[in-house]
C-alpha cells in the first residue's frame, strides 16, 4: 500500500506529460497566431505525435493556449474558461500581443497581456508566431511539468 502511494504521483505526471491536451482561445488576437496554431494539427506539423490534442471543451483540457491582448469583452469569458479547466492547469501565451499587449499597447479596449488576468507559465513571443515556435513553447512547458 505504501509503495502504491509513492508510485501514483509518478504515473500521473507521466500521463500528463504524454498527453497534454490544449484548449485554444482567441482572447482578441488578429487571427495570425490562431491560424498558425491550427496549422499545427495538419500534416506538415502534426503535433499529435507528441500526444497533444486540440480539445474543444475546457473541462477536458490541461493547457490553455491564449492568443490576443485580452479585450474588455473577452475578459470575463477568459476567466470563466480558465476556472472551468480542472487542476492542474497551465497557461501558454502565444504571440507578442498576448505576452505584453504588443502592437495594440495603448488601445482603450485591451488589458495588455494574459498575465494581467491569469498566471502565465510560458510565453511564446512573435508577431505572428511561427508554428515551430509554438511547438517549441508547448514542448518546453510540458518538459517543465514535475
Amino acid at each position: 500500500m505504501e509503495k502504491n502511494k509513492a508510485i501514483l504521483p509518478n504515473i500521473l505526471t507521466w500521463a500528463r506529460k504524454k498527453s497534454p491536451w490544449i484548449l485554444h482561445f482567441n482572447s482578441g488576437g488578429c487571427n495570425g497566431c490562431d491560424i498558425e496554431l491550427l496549422s499545427l494539427l495538419t500534416p506538415s506539423y502534426d503535433i499529435e505525435r507528441f500526444g497533444i490534442l486540440n480539445e474543444a471543451s475546457p473541462r477536458h483540457a490541461d493547457i490553455l493556449v491564449c492568443t490576443g491582448p485580452v479585450t474588455e469583452q473577452v475578459r470575463p469569458r477568459l476567466k470563466r474558461i480558465y476556472d472551468q479547466i480542472p487542476e492542474p492547469k497551465w497557461v501558454l501565451a502565444v504571440g507578442s500581443c498576448s505576452c505584453s499587449g504588443g502592437v495594440f499597447s495603448g488601445a482603450y479596449n485591451i488589458l495588455g497581456g494574459i498575465d494581467k488576468l491569469l498566471p502565465v507559465d510560458m510565453y511564446v513571443p512573435g508577431c505572428p508566431c511561427r508554428p515551430e515556435t509554438i511547438i517549441d513553447g508547448i514542448i518546453k512547458l510540458v518538459e517543465s511539468i514535475q
Binding site: 482567441n26 482578441g28 488576437g29 488578429c30 487571427n31 495570425g32 497566431c33 490562431d34 491560424i35 490576443g68 491582448p69 479585450t71 469583452q73 473577452v74 469569458r77 500581443c97 502592437v103 495594440f104 495603448g106 488601445a107 482603450y108 479596449n109 485591451i110 508577431c127 505572428p128
Partner: peptide, 30 residues
C-alpha cells in the same frame, strides 16, 4: 469580442507606424 480599437489607435500613431498596425487587423488578409 475582438474589438481592440484599432481605428482610434491609428489616430495616435504616425502614418508609417500605422502600416505595421493595420497589418494586424486580420492575420488572414493582412
Amino acid at each position: 469580442y475582438v474589438h481592440r480599437g484599432i481605428e482610434k489607435l491609428a489616430q495616435q500613431r504616425t502614418y508609417v507606424q500605422n502600416v505595421y498596425l493595420i497589418e494586424r487587423i486580420c492575420g488572414i488578409c493582412s
